[in-house]
């Protein structure tokens, strides 16, 4: 008999290698395309020159260099990091709450981040916090509240956590809607872009914190594959398999929320990546996290880079919010997933 998973055995390292090779290719293609198309050779040349010498190459014009290095490259890298972070957070939360329909937003952290961001946009910053800082703080505060509401006698039951997150989300969304109603007309498109997610306008300075957090959290999670698998089987089985269930779940929730907060504080509430990508990868490699997490990170990153490219180029000169594209791509897949029959081998 052979494994029912499409990618198993020797195909797995091949898939990882192909996706790794696709990263630089996709980045160059995404940076090269847009309102002005630039040749891939120039893009490659400019990026490598900046990375090695820290300066623009002499044979690329100042305008091209500006477009490549200061405009498109940072947003593309942010899309890569944001996609990876959201997809990994989604995969982990699906295991933590043991519900295939969970995503990074199930704990309400996005609603908290959105409320804080919209508050800063409409009411102005508080204590020197910009939109990103406020969103991050809002996400963390919401997580703390959800954990507090969802715990009883020191334990966190997955169902109660989800319900606490959903309930709090509605409250926070209500407050966000109220702020939107009171917003000046000029502030609305900014609010909409933030709520639907976008990597437009990202600069290299915005990237350091999310990059460090996404790489560190993903690396730690990738080492927890065995214990994550055990968590999927239920608290009692996980305990019988030697997992300190409550402590581990708290750590996973904190790390997943940190990932989500780090991403949405700079990229806004990009929907569906965290829900759809883990499922797509699981369909191919099966539920083993040791195999799926690296692919989830790579696929999520590449997916969002492609979505951002589409957002910039589909209807010029209008740039679409990322959430519009991820929803258009994600919803049909998600509905198919819901209606799919259980695989029978």
């Amino acid at each position: 008999m052979t494994s029912p998973h499409l990618i198993s055995g020797w195909r797995y390292p091949l898939a990882v290698a192909l996706l790794l090779a696709a990263v630089p290719l996709t980045l160059v293609a995404a940076v090269g395309h847009g309102a002005v198309d630039l040749p891939a050779a120039d893009v490659w040349h400019t990026i490598t020159a900046h990375l090695t010498t820290g300066r623009r190459p002499a044979d690329v014009s100042g305008i091209d260099d500006e477009i490549i290095w200061n405009s498109r490259a940072p947003r593309t890298v942010l899309a890569l990091v944001a996609g990876a972070g959201l997809a990994v957070a989604g995969a982990v939360l699906q295991a933590v709450v043991r519900n295939p329909l969970a995503d990074p937003y199930v704990l309400g952290v996005t609603s908290g981040a959105s409320l804080a961001a919209v508050a800063v946009i409409t009411l102005g910053g508080v204590a020197g916090l910009g939109v990103s800082g406020a969103a991050f703080a809002g996400a963390c505060a919401t997580l703390a509240l959800v954990l507090l509401l969802g715990s009883r006698r020191g334990t966190l039951a997955p169902t109660r956590l989800v319900l606490a997150g959903v309930a709090l989300s509605y409250l926070l969304q209500g407050a966000t809607s109220y702020l939107q109603l009171r917003a000046q007309p000029g502030q609305l498109s900014g609010i909409l872009f933030w709520l639907l997610g976008s990597v437009a306008g990202a600069g290299w300075d915005d990237l350091a914190v999310p990059c460090v957090i996404v790489v560190a959290c993903t690396a730690w999670l990738a080492l927890q594959g065995r214990r994550l698998n055990a968590m999927l089987l239920g608290d009692e089985t996980a305990a019988a398999l030697g997992v300190a269930v409550h402590r581990f779940r708290l750590a996973l929730l904190a790390v997943a929320a940190l990932l989500t907060a780090a991403v949405i504080s700079v990229a806004g509430g990009v929907a569906f990546v965290g829900l759809v990508v883990p499922h797509a990868v699981r369909l191919l490699v099966g539920p083993d996290h040791r195999l799926s997490l690296p692919l989830v990170a790579l696929t999520g990153g590449l997916f969002l880079v492609a979505a951002d490219l589409a957002a910039r180029t589909l209807s010029p000169p209008l740039e679409l919010p990322l959430g519009v594209l991820t929803a258009v791509l994600g919803t049909p897949f998600f509905l198919w997933l819901l209606r799919r029959e259980s695989p029978v081998t």
Binding site: P4, R226, N229, L232, L233, A240, L241, G242, G286
Partner: peptide, 30 residues
């Protein structure tokens, strides 16, 4: 303690499509 005591009990975990080999491999967790 999980290295000393192994358990056979039905505790759910049906939502994800583990193969038999993958399920048995979770026994190596500790």
């Amino acid at each position: 303690s999980a290295q000393r005591i192994a358990v056979v009990a039905q505790h759910g975990g049906d939502g994800f499509d583990f193969t038999v080999a993958e399920l048995v491999a979770t026994g190596r967790t500790p």
